[in-house]
Amino acid sequence: MILKTPTSPHIHADITVTTLMSRVIVALTPAIVGYVYFFGWGLLVHIAIAIAVGLSCEAAMLKLRQRPLQPFLRDGSVLVTAILLTFCIPPLCPWWITAIGMFFAIVVAKHLYGGLGYNPFNPAMVGYVVLLISFPKEMTSWTPPGILQGLQVGFGDTLAIIFLGDFPYTLTLDALSMATPLDTVKTELNLSKTVDEIKTGNAIFGDFGGIGWEWIGNWIFLGGVWLIYKKVISWQVPLAMLGSLFAIATIFYLKDASNYASPMFHIFSGAAMLGAFFIATDPVSSCTTPMGRIIFGAGVGVLTYIIRVWGGYPDGVAFAVLLMNMAAPTIDYYTRPRVYGHSGS
């Protein structure tokens, strides 16, 4: 009789990395549905491209690094990266934009740093920033929500635009695209208009942020709260990020409402909501101590505002997250919680 002698604990919770990643994907589903409703089929096509490219890159890198394929291809992390990246890509972008973005995210930002768990930077955001810097035209050609255009680009047309660059009728990308609300505010404030002047008469603005966008923001919020409830993400990062963004925007808004957009506009525009619940909360590249997470989130919020208002880009979430990623190890080191039985110091 040979007895097995594993070491304690002898039981384990029914949870895996795949469980966590699936929950993130489930939480993103309402936002995906909303996105498709407002902006057409483009997102789904890009998600498909991103997943295909992402999984191929992942498999190739695992092979090169002589790691087992099965567990890592099944962990779901590539799917999450793919969805997050495509959320940041205009829905009618050419296919190769997504492909290059995923290549950078998976090969450079993830595997060259050691693969799952070792990447200091958020892969999706690295991919996005590479695209934004390298292909600014494609990356800023956002189509407004379909309800504003009065026409919906069908699925077949979407495929044709993305893969072949063939636009239906006599349309062009220029004709289809429009500045985003954040972009509009930024450009027109530079033309000495007041926020009120910018907003009045521009149908792209909704109640708080951009029309359509703010609804996606609601769905993201819903998914995010569910993730907190499920303990997949912590409450500290989203709260600190949205809180600090709201706080700093309020200060400037109260000081000068004609030159600074309202705090609600900031929270419901651009990638703020997505960043707070799904990007800044990436466990690998963000802080891991409770206090550290608060500082990390607050940092992302403040930097986002600074870049949006005084920086060169209309949105700043990606840069803010990457900058804070750099600071995460140091923040973690200085925010160690007081251990049981140790006097606080």
Binding site: I11, T16, L20, Y340
Partner: peptide, 23 residues
């Protein structure tokens, strides 16, 4: 039900820190 034989890399999710009774 015990742990899987194949461990994955740590993703720093912090679930362990949340569970640690010694903080």
């Amino acid at each position: 039900p015990s742990r899987l034989p194949q461990a994955m890399p740590c993703i720093r999710c912090g679930a362990c820190a949340d569970a640690c009774p010694m903080n």
